[in-house]
Design a protein around this nucleic acid. Structure first.
Length: 567
RNA sequence: UGGGGCGUCGCCAAAUGGUAAGGCAGCGGCCUUUGGAGCCGCCAUUUGCAGGUUCGAGUCCUGCCGCCCCAACCA
């Protein structure tokens, strides 16, 4: 997955790795992606995944997948399965290197005992509230626990009894003995172990105590020989603690190095689990795989190709500046990918009936359509044509503005792959709305070219009314209105885009589209890329619009005060 | 007001102290049986601000300004 022909990436991370290799500090680069199995992966994770796997691949090293499963309260085996599936979908493979922090519980425990013996950790009997009260504030030092001075012997005894399950949850913790007055808050005697009466999805009831992040993560990295431990910027204050643990555990050089990078933020969405859960619980979206969500599952259902996600992650770059990447960049990658491989089809979203008056009533014929102009090997297909057709409402105007290159009274346009037709009449309904348009066709222009060489400006998509297949289309827009919904107001839900989903039913598509398996991707010409949704029924497809095509006309129309096309 | 991080084009992001890459978006144009795709061109005399060092500063120094993170027995 690193065959990209992009400009050589030259970020600070790569430079650092190169230096470590050149100096001989490390022989082989070993990275890891360490998710907690407590939810579904999202775009933000994709950057982390791509970063770690790409970096290892680029320098001939390896990347581990390690589940950071040290909090049984939040984790479940469903998530470890789902996360693996999502990572594979992105195109990455950890080979033999699948690990679980829970597999290290015994080793971690022994290491903790080692710290206790050396006086680097102690058992504290303070309650959670008391510990908090003594932590001090950002500007004031904390005050030492009264249990801080317990002897190593007593601490070891107590810690062993914690492990034996003698104490109830919350009654005691193991703490690092560092510095209650440290200006770095995580260094104020952080908690290393807690007592928990909770079954773990992998170790069951084996452990009444569980290690916390700072202790477990640093040592897990060390146990696996991780050389570069990449995390996001918010962990930067914990680096001293990360290093302290490795030092106290007497981990041999080269020790893993924690390197912090800015997270990948995307405009117009939210990524935190808490917020996503709220959207789902409040019924604002359908579920974790709702195509509007930035979850990998949602994006997969929406039809975003994994390659596009990876390119988006890579081209977003790695830096220490926190900023939002624009959704338009993601969409650019999605289009680039789909343009290469999505077969084209004809379909009409908002139908307007067209009658070709001079076309024989009962006649029909097959016309040859190109499957993918980007890929000659994709070949051609036959599309049925007849007297009555559907065209897009937006493609007709009775009184068109200047740059409108579509159908209008008296004007000749091309029906894609079919004929040149001229609009001769317009039928209005009782409300004065256009109900039907009449045209004549030029039989000499079969296929779309005029023998006399005359040109027309517009080419319209269409579908034969008699042959059309009814489908449901789901059109999506960003879930939120602001780039950063969290900064938009008191409640991020206030920023919700009420029009993030538009269901159009029925839409008419060319025959052949009714039996496609879920996940099939195609381009409805001029309308965008679509993916067959799993909700599809036999003979009744549901199409998710992945992304529209670039639409220059809408800009022109908007500027000239014309009719901006819908959908 | 403690500690830490960050400020280069609307967005993302490069630049051994040597005279501001690239991508996205945008804007012109060419081409076109998708107003798609493709192609060509334009788009930072300037790097948060103010000083200083230097022949030379986005890069070094000083002082400001602004934004973000840290006080879970979560990760």
């Amino acid at each position: 997955m690193s065959e990209d022909a992009e400009a050589p990436r030259n970020d600070f991370l790569r430079k650092r790795v190169r230096e470590d290799l050149d100096s001989g500090r490390v022989q082989t680069v070993v990275t890891r992606f360490p998710p907690e199995p407590n939810g579904y992966l999202h775009v933000g994770h994709s950057q982390n995944i791509a970063l770690n796997f790409d970096l290892a691949a680029e320098f001939g090293g390896r990347c581990h997948l390690r589940f950071d499963d040290t909090n049984p309260l939040a984790e479940s085996p469903e998530f470890v399965a789902a996360q693996q599936e999502d990572i594979r979908w992105l195109g990455y493979d950890w080979g033999e290197h699948l690990y679980f922090a829970s597999n290290y519980f015994e080793r971690l425990y022994e290491t903790a005992c080692h710290l206790v013996r050396n006086g680097a950790a102690y058992v504290c009997d303070l309650s959670s509230e008391e510990i908090e009260a003594r932590r001090g504030t950002l500007t004031q030092p904390g005050e030492p626990s009264p249990y801080r001075t317990r002897s190593a012997e007593e601490n070891l005894d107590l810690f062993q009894r914690m492990r034996a399950g003698e104490f109830p949850p919350g009654s005691r913790v193991l703490r690092a003995r560092i510095d209650m007055a440290s200006p770095v808050l995580p260094m104020r005697d952080p908690i290393l172990y807690r007592v928990l009466d909770a079954p773990h999805h992998r170790t069951g009831a084996d452990w009444p105590i569980y290690p916390l992040y700072d202790f477990a993560h640093s040592l897990s990295d060390a146990f696996e020989g991780i050389t570069h431990s990449i995390c996001t910027l918010e962990f930067i204050d914990r680096r001293p603690l990360y290093e302290w643990v490795l030092e106290q555990a007497e981990i041999a050089e080269p020790r893993p190095q924690q390197i912090e990078v800015a997270p990948l933020l995307v405009t117009g969405t939210v990524m935190s689990k808490r917020l996503l859960r709220r959207l789902i619980q409040d019924g604002l979206v359908a579920g974790w795989d709702d195509p509007r969500l930035p979850t990998l599952r949602g994006m997969r259902r929406r039809g975003y190709p994994p390659e596009a996600l990876c390119r988006f992650a890579r081209t977003s770059g790695v830096s220490r500046t926190i900023g939002f990447s624009q959704q338009s960049r993601l969409e650019h990658e999605v289009r680039a990918e789909l343009n290469e491989r999505a077969p084209r089809a004809l379909g009409v979203l908002r139908p307007l009936r067209v009658v070709i008056d001079n076309y024989p009533e009962d006649h029909e014929e097959d016309l040859v359509a190109v499957n993918n102009p980007q890929d000659e090997a994709a070949g051609t297909r036959n599309v049925p044509f007849s007297r009555e057709l559907w065209i897009e409402r937006d493609d007709f105007m009775r009184d068109p503005p200047k740059k409108f290159h579509r159908m209008a009274p008296g004007r000749e346009v091309r029906l894609r792959f079919a004929y040149l037709v001229t609009c001769t009449d317009v039928v209005l309904d009782d409300d004065g709305e256009v109900a039907e348009v009449h045209c004549t066709y030029d039989p000499e222009t079969r296929g779309g070219d005029a023998p006399d060489g005359r040109k027309v400006r517009g080419t319209l998509h269409w579908v034969s009314a008699r042959h059309a297949v009814a489908a449901e289309a789901r059109l999506y827009a960003p879930l939120f209105q602001s780039d950063d919904p969290l900064a938009a107001g008191d409640d991020f839900l206030d920023d919700l885009n009420p029009d993030s989903l538009e269901v159009v039913d029925p839409v008419w598509v060319e025959p052949g589209l009714e039996g496609l398996p879920a996940g099939t991707q195609l381009q409805l010409e001029r309308l965008g890329y679509f993916t067959v949704d799993p909700d599809s029924q036999p003979g009744r497809p549901v199409l998710d619009r992945t992304v529209t095509l670039r639409d220059t006309w809408s800009k022109i129309a908007a500027r000239s005060g014309g009719n901006p096309p819908q959908g």
